[in-house]
């Protein structure tokens, strides 16, 4: 059993506070991603879990043991680094077997474990190569092999796919996910890419400026974000925000009336932010008129950037549309999937 409990963890560099009391509960076998823009403290938190950064306050427990004062070697974690961090003077096999060698494991046993991991990761033919002789994707796999050979309590991934090209990133994403399903090891995965977070995680932790904004299952975060930051961060293309006023017959943004499912009576008359995802805006015969600014066909879908009530709004069309910049289209946001936020605090209403 290896659950991870992060309780009120803080990190400060002198007077600068990087983490302001972060608490996260990670269950045994769970795949958790820490996601947020750069500088939000997610990598710092991961490095604190690994024991590479000192913990300024709070406690971290791995498998019920407080590890605050333990060096990395005594935490039984395996970390995969962004730049792979392979040992350049060792072959692939030596890289993967290094942790076992340090534990004085029997040579034959090391060989067996390395070969098994190499088979899982399709590295069998590369075992005698040096890191410099490998491509980026292969290096990434060696880095993962080095982690799984050890059979640790927890895997820590620090933006492992950010150096790969887009296509490889998608296939490695699936590989890591299936690896997790196969091994069932508790995993903490740091990324700034919300698509990675959404597709891989059992649970997502959204962070900003050293604070946890929301914790939840990927679809829970997508369906009911607690504030505008999470709403804008999760989902691609990002959610549209329009400021205006809540009326009993809809939402008034400038002179445009947008559909809204019957609002709670106490909200009527109040200023708010109207949040709607691009994929929840219908484009058709009726609805509010908007002028097309940009058309971005991706093949499967077409993104339209339109001007609505003086603000830019993105919407997605599944069908091919015969529209160009300057044309008028009619939009009908799905009233059942509207999010309302407080304009000052950004909190969900």
């Amino acid at each position: 059993m290896a659950s991870v409990e992060i309780h009120n963890v803080q990190k400060s560099y002198g007077t600068l506070k990087a983490l302001h009391g972060v608490s996260i509960q990670i269950d045994d076998g769970e795949f958790v991603t820490l996601v947020g823009p750069s500088g939000c403290g997610k990598s710092t938190l991961l490095r604190m879990l690994a024991g590479l950064e000192e913990i300024s306050g709070g406690t971290i427990r791995i498998a019920e043991t407080v590890v605050n004062e333990l060096p990395p070697k005594d935490r039984d974690i395996a970390m995969v680094f962004q730049n792979y961090a392979l040992y350049p003077h060792m072959t692939v096999a030596e890289n993967m077997g290094f942790a076992l060698k340090l534990k004085n494991t029997d040579k034959r046993e090391i060989q067996g474990k390395v070969e098994r991991a190499a088979r899982i990761l399709n590295l069998d033919t590369l075992l005698q190569r040096y890191p410099r002789q490998l491509s980026g994707g292969q290096r990434q796999r060696v880095a993962m092999g080095r982690a799984i050979v050890r059979d640790p309590k927890v895997f820590l991934f620090d933006e492992p796919l950010s150096n790969l090209d887009a296509k490889l990133r998608v296939s490695m994403r699936a590989e890591i996910k299936s690896l997790h399903q196969r091994l069932g090891t508790t995993t903490v995965y740091v990324t700034h890419d919300q698509v990675e977070a959404m597709t891989m995680a059992d649970k997502i932790v959204v962070m900003r400026d050293g604070v946890v904004e929301q914790v939840g299952a990927p679809l829970a975060l997508y369906d009911s974000p607690v504030n505008m930051f999470v709403a804008g961060f999760i989902g691609s293309p990002a959610m549209n925000f329009l400021t205006g006023e809540i009326r009993d017959d809809g939402f008034l943004a400038g002179d445009v009336r947008l559909p809204l499912a019957a609002p709670a009576p106490e909200l009527v008359g109040r200023r708010a932010v109207y949040g709607v995802r691009p994929e929840h805006i219908g484009i058709g015969e009726d609805g509010v008129a908007a002028e097309v600014c940009v058309v971005e066909p991706t093949g499967a879908e077409t993104y339209l950037v339109v001007r609505l009530a003086g603000q830019e709004v993105t919407c997605v069309a599944r069908d091919r549309l015969d529209v160009r910049a300057g044309h008028m289209v009619r939009l009908s946001p799905d009233p059942g999937r509207i999010h309302l936020f407080d304009p000052q605090s950004g909190r969900r209403l």
Binding site: G51, A78, Y87, L102
Partner: peptide
Amino acid sequence: AIEAARCDG
């Protein structure tokens, strides 16, 4: 690489 070695034990 040094940090990786520390994590490796």
